[in-house]
């Protein structure tokens, strides 16, 4: 579903990704762990198409399409969802307007009909209730006045609303309290299906206790330096990143 081959990317003048190769098939859940500054968020931003992240070598394909040739909004409409490590605040644009604009923009690009107001609100109520985001919060500006954990819940809420094919979640678990972690994990597990895939960027085993990954990768210095099963995460938890092949 997602095929990344020998990806090199620079931010500013600095090369951050240095030959990263990764393949995620439909139905799979992969986890990426790795030290601070290794390039995990850079990978997420490159895949989502953020300005200023320049790919100098290599390729990335999503369901056979050249991802790097697509605009950010086209990637979203194709089914790629990025859960931000640092969700952005947008004063003056309510969460509801933001989501409805996004949903309809995606539908339009896919040649589908707009969602009706009633259908949209029904879905909002269903998805927000479990995440503890109430209507007052959703009527506020996007993430404005949200706590760190609430912002991450909002990312999970958007994932539920937008129903992408591929969820790339950059530390969505960081900042969540114990109950929220369980709830968000349940959401990810519900999202799992034979047609979809998940790439979790995380620092913590506790997320992987709830969402069992098929493959765990270690990203260090801009490359995948080791891959394995869930036991790799447990080993990292015990031993840290020191002594890994760099």
């Amino acid at each position: 579903m997602l095929e990344i081959t020998n990806l090199h990317a620079t931010v500013g003048e600095r090369e951050i990704l240095k030959g990263l190769t990764l393949s995620v098939k439909a139905g799979e859940v992969h986890a990426i762990m790795g030290p601070n500054g290794a390039g995990k968020s850079t990978l997420a931003h490159v895949l989502a198409g953020r300005e200023g992240y320049e790919v100098t070598k290599g390729s990335a394909h999503f369901e056979g399409r050249d991802l790097l040739d697509m605009e950010p909004h086209e990637r979203a409409a194709a089914g790629l969802f990025l859960g931000f490590q640092y969700p952005v605040e947008i004063p003056g644009v309510s969460n509801l307007l933001f989501l409805r604009t996004a949903m309809n923009a995606q539908r339009k690009l896919r040649g589908e009909a707009e969602i009706s107001g009633a259908e949209f609100m029904k879905k909002v109520k269903a998805e927000s209730a479990t995440l503890g985001l109430d209507m007052d919060m959703l009527k506020r500006g996007v993430n404005v006045g949200f706590s760190g954990g609430e912002k991450k819940r909002n990312e999970a809420f958007q994932l539920g609303m937008l129903e992408p094919k591929f969820a790339l979640l950059d530390e969505t678990d960081s900042g969540l309290d114990i109950d929220a972690l369980r709830i968000v994990s349940e959401g990810i597990n519900r999202f799992r299906s034979a047609e979809r895939a998940v790439l979790l960027i995380t620092h913590y085993q506790r997320l992987l206790d709830h969402v069992r990954p098929d493959v765990v990768h270690v990203l260090a210095k801009g490359r995948i330096v080791e891959s394995g099963g869930p036991e790799l995460a447990l080993r990292l938890e015990a031993q840290g990143y020191e002594g890994l092949a760099a």
Binding site: E71, H73, L82, V88, T101
Partner: peptide
Amino acid sequence: DKAGLFYLQSRGVPRPEAEALLTRAF
């Protein structure tokens, strides 16, 4: 705000519409 624009784009909103939405809010 560049970060706000990218957030909107990453959710499926084309750049010109994202700019218009932020400007309207302003």
